[in-house]
């Protein structure tokens, strides 16, 4: 039996997230964002279906399929419950996502084991915004602080 705790990650009704898929054994990190009604768990299907982006990037990066990977973790970081973050218009979410990805690329050499960041993110015009920078820094800090216990 495989037991998986999903806590509240299925709730996206009034909540947007930055999320990170992590495999320490295979040294892979994938960053994304979502305002999906079904939360980060619901969003996962889009990453792992046959044409899923994570599945594809994983195979490109490692040369083998993601199917045999047995240590993937989903880390979900809730964003503020305000209109600009939960709206369909995604420039605020995209900006946080971009900065988180960029910081993880800078951070990866300092963490053990190191990892490759395989997600592709769009550059958002809002990455200079101080509030967004603060949010991204909090997420990265939380990732870094907890990395050893993942």
């Amino acid at each position: 039996m495989l037991e998986t705790s999903i806590l509240g990650t299925f709730n996206g009704s009034d909540q947007a997230y930055i999320y990170i898929w992590l495999s320490k054994k295979h040294k892979i990190v994938y960053v994304g964002m979502t305002n999906s009604y079904t939360g980060t768990i619901g969003r996962a299907s889009g990453h792992f279906n046959r044409k899923g982006t994570l599945r594809k990037r994983f195979s490109e990066a490692r040369g083998y399929e993601v199917n045999n990977v047995d240590d993937i973790l989903l880390l979900s970081f809730p964003l503020p419950k305000t209109r600009e973050f939960i709206s369909v218009e995604k420039s605020y979410r995209e900006a946080v996502e971009y900065l988180v990805q960029k910081e993880l690329i800078l951070l990866r050499g300092k963490l053990n084991p190191t990892f490759d960041v395989i997600s592709w993110v769009r550059l958002s015009p809002r990455t200079g915004n101080s509030r967004i920078k603060r949010l991204a820094a909090e997420i990265v800090n939380s990732f870094e602080t907890n990395y050893s216990r993942f």
Partner: peptide, 9 residues
């Protein structure tokens, strides 16, 4: 505007 310029406000 200030936040967009990167200022802490």
């Amino acid at each position: 505007m200030k936040e967009d310029k990167g200022e802490e406000v």
